Amino acid sequence: MAASIRMKGARTGLQNAALGTGTVFCLAGILGFIPGITSNYDSLRLAGHASEALLLGVFQVSVLHNTVHLLFGAAGILMSRSHPQARNFLVYGGVIYLVLWLYGLLVGDPIPANFIPANHADNWLHLVLGLAMIALAIMLARGPAPAADTGSTANSSVPGTRRR
C-alpha cells in the first residue's frame, strides 16, 4: 500500500496560497481558449511570437502558453496537498517566472528564438508573479510546518514527556 502525502487536519496558509495560485493559473489557461475573453482568437497559434491572441485584450497567448498555464496550475493544486511541496511550488515557480521575465526582456518579441508569445504586459506580469510567489513562500513558511498525523498513539499529548 502506498503512503499518502496528503496531510490530515487543517491546511496551512502556505498550502492555501499554493492552492489559490494553482487555481488562478488553471483559470488563466482555460480563459485563454475562450473566444471573447481572448481577443483576436482567430490568430491563436500553437507557439511563437506570431500569435496575436490577447487574453483579456492585454496578455499575448498561444496554445502552448495556455497549456503551460493549465499544467503549472495543476502542479500547484497537487503540490498544495503538503506544506513542503506547497513551499517548493511557490519558491521554484516564482524563480521560473523571474527567469521568464528576464527571458522576455532579453530575447524580445521579433526574434525567432522567442517561442513564448509574451508582450510587455506579459513580461511585467511575470515579474510581479515571480516576486509575489516567492514572497508568499517566505512569509507563510515561517514557523514549524504542521506535523503529519500518522495515526499513531505512541506520542504523548503532555509536553515534555515521552512514551517508551
Rank of each mutant, 00 (worst) to 15 (best):
residue 18 A to N: 02
residue 19 L to T: 00
residue 20 G to C: 10
residue 21 T to R: 01
residue 21 T to G: 07
residue 23 T to K: 01
residue 29 G to F: 02
residue 30 I to S: 01
residue 33 F to H: 08
residue 37 I to Y: 02
residue 37 I to A: 09
residue 39 S to Y: 07
residue 39 S to W: 07
residue 39 S to E: 07
residue 39 S to H: 09
residue 39 S to V: 10
residue 41 Y to Q: 10
residue 49 H to Y: 11
residue 49 H to P: 13
residue 51 S to G: 03
residue 52 E to Y: 09
residue 53 A to C: 02
residue 53 A to I: 01
residue 54 L to F: 00
residue 55 L to Q: 05
residue 56 L to C: 06
residue 58 V to M: 07
residue 58 V to A: 05
residue 61 V to S: 03
residue 62 S to Y: 04
residue 62 S to G: 05
residue 64 L to A: 14
residue 64 L to D: 07
residue 64 L to E: 07
residue 68 V to W: 10
residue 71 L to N: 00
residue 71 L to A: 15
residue 74 A to W: 06
residue 76 G to M: 13
residue 81 R to K: 12
residue 84 P to W: 00
residue 84 P to N: 04
residue 85 Q to S: 14
residue 86 A to G: 06
residue 86 A to M: 03
residue 87 R to Y: 11
residue 88 N to D: 10
residue 90 L to H: 03
residue 91 V to N: 03
residue 95 V to K: 10
residue 97 Y to Q: 08
residue 104 G to Y: 04
residue 105 L to Q: 12
residue 105 L to W: 12
residue 105 L to V: 15
residue 107 V to C: 11
residue 109 D to F: 14
residue 112 P to I: 08
residue 112 P to V: 08
residue 114 N to E: 06
residue 116 I to F: 15
residue 116 I to K: 00
residue 120 H to R: 14
residue 121 A to G: 09
residue 121 A to V: 09
residue 122 D to T: 12
residue 124 W to E: 12
residue 124 W to N: 11
residue 125 L to G: 07
residue 126 H to F: 13
residue 126 H to I: 13
